[in-house]
């Protein structure tokens, strides 16, 4: 009863606060409203779990999750090492690098581009994570197979975006370089690659999320006894949901942090692009 009242009070008060914040001055409200909403959800979650005595195996309270994070820092660190540093990072680098090189290669041959592009965009629409069991068979249980999944997953988005980016140069800019008698490498380095940067960063950002998903899901198919995906699947099966939530929180943090980091680099490198000029 009291939990119900508490939730009701939270909801009413919360909506009031959100409405007021949303009407506030633009700069304040853009930051404060989503934060307040997040805090509200956490508070409601906590009150709900405690007030109704929700069993731990259904939904642990945020405080329990925080405790689990604090308690299992070494485990989280080991899983981070295994999944992010050993599987995601190399896989992402190799996949994106290969996609970019393939795009540059394709750029010189319109015939190949016409052949590869439709297949590449089909490949991006496919459930590529499904190759995880095959990669586990080929490369073993350890991080190599996860990195391989990540390579395949990140290759096609980069290929397609980079080709589109290299293609996006305007006729006038290309004619200008032609009028200078620029060689192909010159036009590639001075015009087309810089011009393709926004597209390339787009793929890098998209791929950072895809890579994390690929590595985690691949771990569902078998791993040594470490890794975020491994931990999530085994601890879920053992009903240790607070640890699962701790891993999910870490995955979310890693995902947002890498996206934000890439966005910052992008801003620094492509500051000239219209989307960043005010």
């Amino acid at each position: 009863m009291s939990a119900g009242l508490g939730l009701l009070a939270l909801a009413l008060g919360g909506v009031l606060v959100l409405v007021l914040l949303a009407r506030g001055p633009d700069r304040v409200s853009a930051v404060a409203t989503p934060l307040a909403f997040g805090a509200l959800v956490l508070a409601a979650w906590e009150v709900f779990c405690r007030g109704y005595g929700v069993p731990r195996i259904l939904l642990p309270a945020p405080s329990a999750i925080a405790a689990a994070i604090a308690r299992s820092l070494p485990v989280l660190a080991a899983d981070f090492m295994q999944t992010v540093l050993r599987s995601v990072l190399p896989g992402w680098l190799i996949g994106c690098g290969a996609g970019l090189l393939a795009a540059i290669a394709l750029d010189r041959s319109p015939f190949l581009r016409r052949g590869v592009l439709p297949l590449g965009s089909l490949a991006s629409a496919m459930p590529i994570v499904g190759i995880a069991p095959i990669m586990v068979m080929w490369f073993g249980f350890d991080w190599q197979s996860k990195a391989a999944v990540v390579v395949v997953m990140t290759f096609f988005p980069m290929l397609i975006n980079a080709v589109a980016g290299l293609d996006s140069t305007g006729a006038m800019e290309r004619d200008l370089l032609r009028s200078y008698g620029a060689s192909y490498p010159q036009s590639l380095l001075k015009l087309r690659l810089p011009n393709a940067l926004p597209f390339i960063f787009n793929a890098l950002k998209l791929n950072s999320t895809l890579a994390l998903i690929g590595a985690i899901v691949a771990e569902f198919f078998g791993t040594p006894i470490v890794g975020m995906g491994f931990r999530i699947s085994t601890e879920a099966a053992r009903m240790n949901l607070d640890v699962v939530w701790a891993e999910i929180a870490m995955a979310a943090a890693v995902g947002s942090a890498s996206f934000a980091a890439l966005a910052l680099v992008e801003r620094a490198v492509t500051f000239w692009h219209p989307s960043f000029r005010s």
């Binding site: 999320t209 899901v217 999530i232 699947s233 879920a236 099966a237 999910i248």
Partner: peptide
Amino acid sequence: QTVPVLAIAPMVVVV
């Protein structure tokens, strides 16, 4: 969209 949402799948199924 920057978060590997798919990671919650095992937990949702178990819960």
